[in-house]
Design a protein around this nucleic acid. Sequence first.
DNA 1: TATTTTGGTTTATATTATAAACTACTTTAC
DNA 2: GTAAAGTAGTTTATAATATAAACCAAAATA
Lengths: 97, 97
Amino acid sequence: MEFKELDPILHSQLRLAIVSLLISVREAEFTFIREKTNATAGNLSVQIQKLKDAGYISVVKQFKDNYPQTICKITPAGVNAFEQYVKNLQSYLGIQK
Amino acid sequence: MEFKELDPILHSQLRLAIVSLLISVREAEFTFIREKTNATAGNLSVQIQKLKDAGYISVVKQFKDNYPQTICKITPAGVNAFEQYVKNLQSYLGIQK
DNA sequence: TATTTTGGTTTATATTATAAACTACTTTAC
DNA sequence: GTAAAGTAGTTTATAATATAAACCAAAATA
């Protein structure tokens, strides 16, 4: 079996964690993602923007209890990309066919 | 489950492919790895050096049929690192516990 | 009202990946 | 034998990525 290409958007520890998390919860706040991933706010901000630019997540900014709130959701494209990534990753992990 | 750290040495498409390949064959020439991974020679040279510096592979340079030949083998540390990487990766792939 | 906290973004820097250029030969064709 | 093309890489320069530090704006708290 040949080594499959790994989507560079997803082949990043933090972005993969974000997408993985959003697939399991469908929707999450910036601060929640920050806690779960232990990322710095700056890094998280940048990576969320990249995932949004790629169309893998949607981002809604609003106010809640007087504070700004950023909510992220996975998109269908994001789900597809993740599934494909996981599938392609198999070619590296010893699950040879 | 929390997201585990992913060894940055292995979390690189090309280096992961090299290590994955060396685990399945135990020993390989530079040119063979190049063919299997479709990497450029320059990139491969750099990444092999990094894996060697990390102690994950051993590299022997010799001559064969008048030509220089670079042979790579996985080390026990490399096998361990790969196994740990695969294990940690599970935390991102939806195999929640 | 000064200080700290919340919830981020922007910018600068360090790290990493990749490609292009180069080295040092060997082989083959003239 | 010498010019051209091929083999097997390394080095260097550049582009992309990740990370940290600094910053912003408003809210809460002392």
